[in-house]
Design a protein around this nucleic acid. Structure first.
Length: 864
RNA sequence: GCGGACGUGGCGGAAUUGGUAUACGCAACAGACUUAAAAUCUGUCCCUCGUAAGAGGUUGAGGGUUCGAGUCCCUCCGUCCGCACCA
């Protein structure tokens, strides 16, 4: 029995592709281009199964499109700046740069062993000064274009470690290392004006039909456009002189103004700051509000609390009606005006607050069928549509009309105006960290923030830094930050913050078009290659990364670095790779065990060494902390890259989570061998290469040819639609069909031809998934050229049409029989044939037939 | 808390998008080959009743629309992702 040896074949073909430069591409205007990109990896040290799945999908697309004649760009690089390198520096005393580049070397070797169709000549890492110099240049360009500004903004501060924490480093409101209560602290930071593009980023989503609907919806909600009313409440005396006498509020529900119960301002509102100067109670409340993380989740989940300021404001439609003003922890300074009016009957947060502080709840929107006199909201705010009541001039209007009428009234009183608000905030890009791209700015006492002159770029990170203390090593470096002001020449200091790493990943796809260009982009290259035709990555990036990249592309266009707005024409978001979890029975919850520490024996799961029974936990995302990881390198060593690729593509739909199982990879390995045998053990029966189809065809030959062309047609459509698991099911099916047919096939010329056609088609169809095995088999089939240079087959439409189909017959919706008819058989004839069936007559049982529904080519349903 | 998704046999999933539910694969079971095991090949395999022919039921739960619902609508339950300094 012939066996496929991945160990020898895989390196052989990787070398052959490499030597032939099969995947190195250049601009070629005579060919249609296709740009496939998977989200580039963070160089954590080793690839994980998520990478294998991601790159197996991208590689499938790249090889498939290449076979279809496209000029395919499929590059690879490294998202190399970020916190893990600094954590490693602190824990393992290695330099973040050395750690990162070592990881890149290790991961590159691992990725290469998968046999990906990548143009490695374009590789770069975002921590290369040759890359980030362009990022600094673009920052200066954007600054000049008015897209950048500096403002105060809050960070998570660890008062023990004296350092800024990322949200993920804040656990239950405490610093992850020190355990100290985290505080909010205000710092001056750089911002990109992404909000300048709010409307464009929103409306352009409609022009991205090849993005998943859910991602577009999430982005839409994130941008959060809402129309409403902004108006000023007059404070009725007693306001601090330093503040003024109006509170500006924004509301999307001005129709509910007559249900107003109180006003609430953010703890960071200027009025709150002013009032706190004379009120200890308020000052300590604001301090309490600052004693939590900055994440929206933390703020929203916190119990709704507030302090009555003692001030009141006049209702805009009735100056004698006074509303109390609260400082409330659920009002965000970043959204709208940082102040709201509350209508508890029709907003859940307002209602929770009103119930807690015993404030009036007055329904003004009455649902259909309810009586305004008796309608009460209880503990659930009514947010639906209805008729306005208890609302003076708004009475009887619907919500929509009420909103319009209220805005008109306020406008006519010159108290405010209808306006549009966005939830989207400007993008804060300053990070108080070492391992990132330095922000090219010099701060001068006299001149303020001055851009680093272009000739002095890049501002490189100094290498001689220490991580023995928390905080930013750039800040305490003895010499790095001290420079002369480029403008006046006096002593000045560099900006010691570095960029958010999201900037690095916001334009790398453009750099891949020409990685050697002296400017950020080579316009000839970006004009040819962009947009990315197919972008593939995890859903976890559905909002931030993708939104930032869309904004950055627009900013690059404004600064003339690129000629388009939307970077990614097609997007696919793949699911996670999961695995069962295992724990031993020691201690409270046991300790996590990795899959190679356990054995499945007689239906039980036991510890491989001790033989003790193991607790089998849930199926969860592979993670180091739960030890439920499987190392791709081990799998490739054991089964070969083709088998691993096959398995990650085969079982689950690509957008769904994929469960790695031992049985699954075993099954894939068995199929690899079966496929190989199908291909090589029938070679003595096939026609010589390039034999033309004989004029006459035996029944067996025609049947096999039909199966072949159905497989070509189905697999092509499945790949086009990203249904890789279905394409694979068809390959299983097709392989079974070939094996069945081969047993019956003799030396008759049409059969020998059909068998060659089937085997060659099978090789080309599996090549995007099992490229090494396909090359090996292609050679066995007598070809000198590689499969990688062989065009994708086309299905013959004549072989796809069926001459007879089986039509099910239902009686009252239940299947009672079937008839065999031509696909285009007349409906009348079908009906007669159906009614003539004995089983159908039995089911009708003499009852009168009311109606017969004939769906041509599909089904017949008889209603009795 | 807010926003977005998902739920079909023992398991991963398929269902031409409102038309035969469970394709294909895994696991399991039986048989063949083998001194034996592995591998391979053949067959069985949603559930209940039945020796069988057959009958009835089944797509997280409940309701609705329809000649017909896994697919559309409503309510509920469960799981997962994102929430602006993880990448």
């Amino acid at each position: 029995m012939s066996r496929y040896n991945a160990k020898t074949s895989e390196p052989k073909w990787q070398k052959a592709w490499n030597e032939a430069k099969s995947f190195e591409v250049d601009i070629d205007p005579s060919k249609a281009k296709y740009y496939v990109l998977e989200m580039f990896p963070y160089p954590s040290g080793r690839i994980h199964m998520g990478h294998v799945r991601n790159y197996a999908m991208g590689d499938l697309v790249a090889r498939y499109k290449r076979a279809q004649g496209f000029n395919v760009l499929h590059p690879m690089g490294w998202d190399a700046f970020g916190m893990p390198a600094e954590n490693a520096a602190m824990e393992k005393k290695v330099h973040p740069g050395a750690w990162t580049y070592q990881n890149i070397d290790a991961m590159r070797a691992q990725l290469k062993s998968i046999g990906l169709a990548i143009d490695w000549s374009r590789e770069f890492a975002t921590c290369d000064p040759e890359y980030y110099v362009h990022e600094q240049k673009m920052f200066l360009d954007f600054w000049e274009k008015g897209l950048i500004y500096r403002k105060e903004s809050k960070v998570n501060w660890d008062p023990v470690d004296m350092t800024v924490l990322a949200n993920e480093q804040v656990i239950d409101g405490k610093g992850w290392r020190s355990g100290a209560e985290v505080e909010q602290r205000t710092l001056a930071q750089w911002f990109f004006k992404i909000t300048q593009y709010s409307d464009d980023l929103l409306s352009a989503l409609d022009d991205l039909p090849r993005w998943p609907e859910k991602v577009r919806v999430m982005q839409k909600n994130w941008i959060g456009r809402s129309e409403g009313l902004q108006f000023g409440f007059k404070i009725s005396g007693g306001a601090p002189a330093a503040y003024g006498d109006t509170i500006d509020v924004f509301t999307t529900r001005p129709d509910t103004l007559y249900g107003a119960s109180f006003c609430a301002i953010s703890p960071d509102h200027p009025l709150a700051t002013e009032l706190a100067k004379t009120s200890n109670e308020l000052a300590s409340f604001i301090k309490e509000c600052h004693q939590m993380g900055t994440s929206e989740e933390a703020i929203e989940k916190a119990e709704k609390k507030g302090i009555d300021t003692g001030l009141t404001v006049a209702h805009p439609f009735d100056a004698s009606w006074q509303l109390p003003v609260y400082v409330a922890n659920f009002v965000l300074m970043d959204y709208g005006t940082g102040a709201i009016f509350a209508c508890p009957a029709h907003d859940q947060r307002d209602l929770d607050f009103a119930r807690k502080y015993d404030l009036p709840v007055r329904p003004v929107v009455i649902p259909e069928g309810e009586d305004p006199a008796t309608f009460d909201v209880g503990d659930e705010a009514y947010v639906g549509d209805g008729k306005l009541a208890n609302s003076d001039f708004l009475n009887g209007l619907g919500v929509k009309e009420g909103i319009r009428a209220a805005i008109e009234k306020i406008e006519s009183q010159n108290m405010g105006h209808g306006t549009v608000q966005y939830r989207l905030r400007d993008w804060g890009v300053s990070r108080q960290r070492y391992w990132g791209c330095p922000i090219p700015v010099i701060h001068c006492q006299a001149c303020g923030a001055v851009p680093v002159p272009e000739a002095d770029l890049p501002v490189k990170l100094p290498d001689d830094v220490s991580f023995d203390k928390p905080g930013n090593p750039l800040e305490r470096h003895p010499s790095w930050k001290h420079v002369a002001c480029p403008s006046c020449g006096k002593e000045a200091v560099r900006e010691t913050d570095t960029f958010d790493t999201f900037i690095d990943s916001s334009w790398y796809f453009a750099r891949f078009c020409d990685t050697k260009a002296a400017t950020p982009t080579n316009r000839d290259a970006t004009d040819y290659w962009l947009p990315v035709d197919q972008y593939i990555g995890g859903v976890e990036h559905a909002i931030l990364h993708l939104l930032y990249a869309r904004f950055f592309t627009r900013a690059m266009k404004a600064a003339d670095h690129i000629g388009l707005d939307e970077p990614f024409e097609g997007l696919f978001t793949q699911g996670m790779v999961t695995h069962e979890t295992y724990r031993d029975t020691k201690g409270n919850n046991g300790t996590w065990l990795s899959p190679d520490q356990i054995v499945k024996r007689d239906g039980k799961v036991v510890h491989a060494e001790t033989g003790e029974e193991v607790i089998v936990g849930g199926i969860e995302k592979m993670s180091k902390s739960k030890k439920n990881t499987v190392d791709p390198e081990d799998m490739i060593e054991q089964y070969g890259a083709d088998t691993a690729r096959w398995f990650v593509l085969s079982d689950s739909p690509p957008e769904r989570d994929f469960e790695w199982t031992e049985a699954g990879i075993e099954g894939a390995w068995k199929f690899t061998q079966r496929l190989w045998r199908t291909l090589v053990e029938n070679l003595d029966k096939v026609a010589a290469p390039d034999t033309a189809a004989p004029a006459a065809s035996s029944d067996a030959a025609t049947a096999l040819r039909r199966d072949t062309h159905k497989a070509i047609d189905g697999i092509t459509r499945d790949i086009d639609n990203f249904h890789f698991n279905k394409a694979i099911a068809r390959i299983y099916d097709f392989t079974n069909k070939i094996n069945g047919a081969a047993q019956k096939i003799g030396s008759e010329p049409s059969e020998a031809f059909a068998l060659r056609e089937a085997l060659e088609s099978l090789v080309i169809l599996v090549a995007p998934m099992m490229p090494h095995l396909a090359e090996e088999a292609w050679g066995k089939l007598g070809h000198d050229q590689m499969v990688v240079d062989t065009p994708w087959p086309k299905a013959d439409p004549d072989l796809l049409v069926e001459d007879k189909i089986i039509m099910p017959i239902q009686v009252g919706g239940k299947r009672r029989g079937e008839i065999e008819v031509a696909p285009d058989e007349d409906a009348k004839a079908v009906e007669e044939a159906a009614l003539a069936l004995e089983t159908v007559q039995k089911a009708i049982g003499g009852k009168p037939v009311r109606k017969v529904i004939v769906v041509p080519g599909r089904i017949v349903n008889i209603v009795v």
